[in-house]
Design a binder for these strands. Sequence first.
DNA 1: TGGCACGTTCAGTCTTGACTGAACAGCGCG
DNA 2: CGCGCTGTTCAGTCAAGACTGAACGTGCCA
Lengths: 167, 167
Amino acid sequence: MDALRHDDVRHRARRRFLEQVGLAFESVHLPRMAGRVLGALLLGPTDGLTAGELTEALGASKGSISSSTRLLEHYGFVDRVVLPADRRDRFAIRPGAWTRVLDERFSLVRSLRDLAEEGLTLLDPGDDPRPLSEVRDMYEFLDDAWPELLARWEQRRRDMQQEGGRP
Amino acid sequence: MDALRHDDVRHRARRRFLEQVGLAFESVHLPRMAGRVLGALLLGPTDGLTAGELTEALGASKGSISSSTRLLEHYGFVDRVVLPADRRDRFAIRPGAWTRVLDERFSLVRSLRDLAEEGLTLLDPGDDPRPLSEVRDMYEFLDDAWPELLARWEQRRRDMQQEGGRP
DNA sequence: TGGCACGTTCAGTCTTGACTGAACAGCGCG
DNA sequence: CGCGCTGTTCAGTCAAGACTGAACGTGCCA
């Protein structure tokens, strides 16, 4: 009986985790279901899950799973792999995906700097350019600092892998 | 005639700028109208604009302007100021707002690290912890690096101000 | 060639939330 | 006091888009 209850608790915790990842996705303007799928893949076995397994695990429609996996694939979060002697597609986390995703997110920074730059050309002669130039300067700073930060992370990741995981 | 045409071009360019800021807001899940209001304030005179001026400049309803200014105030983008002998509220860009706003955005990072941490406790014994630990480690790295980056920016901003603008 | 198991597509439903416009509340001046 | 000018609130409208479920391909095996 105790084992059963333990399984139940565990199942609820997993379900809650999926929901949290879903909400995190929603907070950056991506469909919640895609987040849940990603969560399921993060918790799932190494060689990934099939669409059928995902529909069952999440209680969602096939259509919804299909569009979610396609989105995750498009964003580079997951790979679609096929095991030999099995014609079902499996979806698995793509290694190193996170770095690239975060990097792409920061490309937004460059567009914001340009936007501020454009705004500066539209000011009336008497107006205070400081608010806009503060925006421009800050995003410029970030744009400069970012590659170096990313390189440091890549380096650290390589170090960690050599040590065979987490020290 | 030429001056008129020039004004027209200028007006279109301003309008386009407002729309771009609106879209930038939308891309981070904030109402587009609030972005347009912020854009108008960035282009406007130093002592800010009244709600009435904003409704006219943007062609939006008073209600919409009201909720937008309140949101911008809440997020710390703008201050509400009152000039003497004028009972209208004026809204003006708050100096240094951008740094704090960006800082708050990065508090999300901490929650993502925690989420990955939680996911690690939910793995089955045989499963590969690497995808999740990669997420955890990366957000941890960013969480560590962020304060230092922010401090560097603050320092640079101070330097720039002392030089009286942009070198 | 049927039948089956997968996966995709698409019209329809439903929820969410931005925006409007009108009613409302405060404040100063006549 | 009541009028005019503020800004706020709120019910209603409208559009965007996530999700469903059924119809539709597609390839494999008998």
